[in-house]
C-alpha cells in the first residue's frame, strides 16, 4: 500500500527526526491496544492452564482444562448450535440483503427514505432490540401472538421460546431485522461500483435479468460478498445479547452460543480457567474461519 510520506532532499537529519515523531503520534493508541488487547490475549492463554477461580485462588493444572473441554458435551453442543445459527443467519442476511440492495440501488423518488428505514435498526443495540422483541412476542400482552390468534393462525398459548425451532426462528428474524441494513448498504455500494458497460453489453446481447445477476453482478461482487461473509460469520459466532435476553439458553439448554458458555463458566460458575480455555478455542476457530474466507476471496479475485 502506498503511503505518501514527506520526503525532502534538504535537511536529511532533521527530516529523519521528524519522521520519528510519527512514533509519538501512534504511541498512545498502540500502548492502549498492547495493554488492553495484546496483554489480555497472553493472559488468557496463561489462565487456560490454571484452575483459576473468580474469587482469586489459582493452581497450575497443565492441560486439564483442555482435556475437560474435549470431553465436554455442552461445549460441543454449543459449538454445533453456534455453527447452525451462523449458517442460517448468514444465508438469510445474504438473501434479504441482496433483495433490498437490488431494490434501492438505483436512484428513484423516495429511495433515500427507504434506505434510511432499512438501516435504522442497525444503530439500535442488540440488547435494546431484544427487549423490544420480548414485548412484541409476549404471549399475554404481545401484539404478535394477538395477531396470530385473531387471524386464526394460532389458538391458545403462543410461547415462542418453549420450542427450539421457534426460539431459533425468532432470534434469526430479530438478527435479520436488526442487521440486514448494513448488509444491504455494503452490497449496494459494491453494485454501484460495477461499471455500467457490463450491463449495457448484456443488454445488447439480450441477456435475461436472472442471467445478468448470476453472470455479471454476483461474480463482480465477490470482494464485497467476501467482506459481508467475514463480518456476518464473525458476528454470528460471537452472538450473546439476544440469547442471554430472549431465550436465556433454553429450552433445555438448546440455544447456548459459545460466548454464553464462556460467560457462564467464568462468571456464573466462577471458573475463569475453564472459561479461558474455551475462549482460546473460540479464538482459534475464528482465526481459522477468517483465514479460510480471506483465502477464498483472494484466490477467486486473482483467478
Amino acid at each position: 500500500m502506498a503511503v505518501p510520506v514527506l520526503t525532502g532532499r534538504r535537511r536529511r537529519g532533521s527530516m529523519a527526526r521528524r519522521q520519528r515523531m510519527g512514533l509519538l503520534f501512534v504511541a498512545p493508541a498502540v500502548l492502549l491496544v498492547l495493554g488492553m488487547f495484546v496483554l489480555p490475549i497472553i493472559v488468557t492463554a496463561v489462565m487456560s492452564f490454571y484452575d483459576w477461580s473468580l474469587l482469586g485462588e489459582r493452581r497450575f493444572v497443565g492441560l486439564a482444562n483442555y482435556r475437560r473441554l474435549t470431553g465436554d458435551d455442552s461445549f460441543w453442543h454449543s459449538l454445533g448450535f453456534t455453527t447452525v445459527y451462523t449458517v442460517i443467519v448468514t444465508a438469510a442476511l445474504l438473501v434479504v440483503g441482496f433483495a433490498l440492495a437490488s431494490a434501492v440501488r438505483h436512484r428513484r423518488r423516495g429511495v433515500g427514505l427507504l434506505r434510511t428505514a432499512f438501516v435504522m435498526p442497525v444503530v439500535i443495540g442488540f440488547a435494546t432490540a431484544s427487549y423490544l422483541t420480548l414485548w412484541l412476542l409476549d404471549d399475554r400482552i404481545g401484539i404478535v401472538p394477538d395477531l396470530l390468534r385473531r387471524t386464526g393462525l394460532a389458538d391458545g398459548n403462543v410461547s415462542v421460546f418453549s420450542s427450539y425451532p421457534s426460539a431459533l426462528t425468532v432470534v434469526v428474524l430479530l438478527v435479520v431485522w436488526k442487521t440486514v441494513g448494513l448488509t444491504m448498504l455494503l452490497l449496494m455500494t459494491g453494485m454501484q461500483a460495477i461499471s455500467k458497460d457490463f450491463y449495457e453489453a448484456a443488454q445488447v446481447d439480450g441477456a435475461r435479468r436472472i442471467r445478468v445477476f448470476f453472470s455479471i453482478t454476483l461474480p463482480l461482487l465477490r470482494p464485497t460478498v467476501g467482506l459481508v461473509l467475514i463480518l456476518t460469520v464473525i458476528g454470528s459466532y460471537l452472538a450473546f445479547d439476544q440469547f442471554f435476553i430472549l431465550t436465556q439458553g433454553g429450552p433445555d439448554n438448546s440455544t447456548i452460543p459459545v460466548v454464553y458458555l464462556i460467560y457462564r463458566a467464568g462468571f456464573i460458575d466462577f471458573n475463569l480457567g475453564y472459561s479461558a480455555a474455551m475462549s482460546i478455542a473460540l479464538m482459534v476457530i475464528l482465526l481459522i474461519l477468517t483465514s479460510i474466507q480471506l483465502l477464498l476471496v483472494r484466490t477467486r479475485e486473482d483467478s
Partner: peptide, 30 residues
C-alpha cells in the same frame, strides 16, 4: 504521514484486533 522504525509491525498489531474478538479475552480482561 511518517516513516519510523517498527511502523509495519505496529499497524499489524492494531489491525489484528479486528481479527480476534474481544469476547474471547473476557476472562483475562476481567
Amino acid at each position: 504521514r511518517f516513516r519510523f522504525p517498527g511502523k509495519g509491525v505496529l499497524f499489524l498489531i492494531v489491525l489484528s484486533t479486528l481479527m480476534i474478538p474481544f469476547q474471547s479475552i473476557v476472562p483475562s480482561l476481567y
